[in-house]
Simulated assay, not measured.
Amino acid sequence: MTTSDIAGSATSNIAGSAMTSHIAGSAMTFPGSTRVEMVMGIPVSVDIRTALPARELAPLLDDAFAWLRWVDDTFNPAKEDSQIGRLNRSQTIRQIPELIEVLHRCDELSRATDGWFEARINGVIDPSGYIKGWALERLSRALSNAGAGDHRITAGEDIRVRGSAAPGKRWRIGIRDPRTNVIRKVVFANDLGIATSGGSTIVNPHTGEVQNALGSVSVIGPDLGVADAYATAIYAMGPLLARRFAAELAASGPYQTMIISRDGQEVSTPGFIDYSGAEARLAG
């Protein structure tokens, strides 16, 4: 698999320096490999557990991190020459299918959340509340298509697991409160996206004011990009509307929510039980 298999616009064969890398010493040593690199200003870990030879794992990991760096170079509004940065300055941009896809999806998610998820505020485009989850979701699908179906990708509080951690074993994921780093819930899954908001600044898109009435919001579901956007939107809503929206979201589809209040109280929608066991339930 080359980087172009992950995204047609990404550049193939770009291998960065790994902070932590463990590739099997023998071409036939199993199982899997883990690499950690700094991307998007945070450590990102790709942990592959599928039994593949090292000669196949190394290029997969090279391409995985090349894709993530391409996403950061393309969508980071803080980078002057990124396509989002150029778009915000009304400069010429390249015709990139992924850019159109992301902006279109952000508009859809804005409508789905009544504007509580919003990538365009005061004329400035910033898809940060969606792009990290989207990038990891795309990477997870690409790894599966390349034969590495057992993996965990972690970037900050965004996590995507697929397949098994070991034969017959689901992945065990601790969901942390980003303010205290305390694990608030452990979930077990073979195929799940987990996004948590609250560790970075989130504004109320309707007023422009920084929202800090909640401790954190975690959303789990089948698509990490969507879960990421929902977690951002629910956090921005504040306590009362957040609880109501989370209950409605859980009743209508596969996305489940855990809300941590500023005083540390925890409530979650019933679907979390399927992944973790009986916990506090969120009343509608």
Rank of each mutant, 00 (worst) to 15 (best):
D107R: 15
I234N: 01
H22P: 05
E108T: 08
D223N: 13
A18E: 08
G8S: 14
R152G: 02
L61T: 02
S164F: 12
E209L: 13
I93H: 01
A24I: 08
Y255Q: 07
E80G: 12
V203M: 10
L68C: 01
F30H: 14
R138W: 03
Q256F: 04
T92H: 11
R170Q: 14
I93S: 00
R170E: 13
M19D: 15
D150E: 03
V219D: 00
G129W: 06
G284N: 13
P205D: 10
D150Q: 04
D81C: 00
A27D: 15
I159C: 13
S218N: 01
I100G: 11
N204Q: 10
I6C: 04
G8N: 08
T113R: 01
A27H: 10
P239K: 12
W134M: 07
M1E: 09
R141Q: 14
T207P: 05
I96F: 06
I93R: 04
S216Y: 10
R184T: 09
I23H: 11
E209I: 08
F188N: 13
D62Y: 00
V186I: 12
P222E: 09
D62L: 00
A229M: 04
E209P: 04
H206R: 14
S140P: 05
L61W: 00
G208F: 03
S82F: 01
A250K: 07
Y130R: 11
V182H: 11
V102P: 09
E266I: 15
W171S: 03
I42N: 11
F75C: 11
V46F: 00
Y255G: 02
A7I: 02
V217S: 00
D5M: 11
M40T: 07
A148W: 02
G198M: 02
S9V: 08
P43Y: 10
A250G: 15
R69C: 04
L240K: 13
S110L: 01
A195S: 05
E266G: 06
N181E: 15
A165C: 09
A280C: 05
R172W: 03
S21H: 10
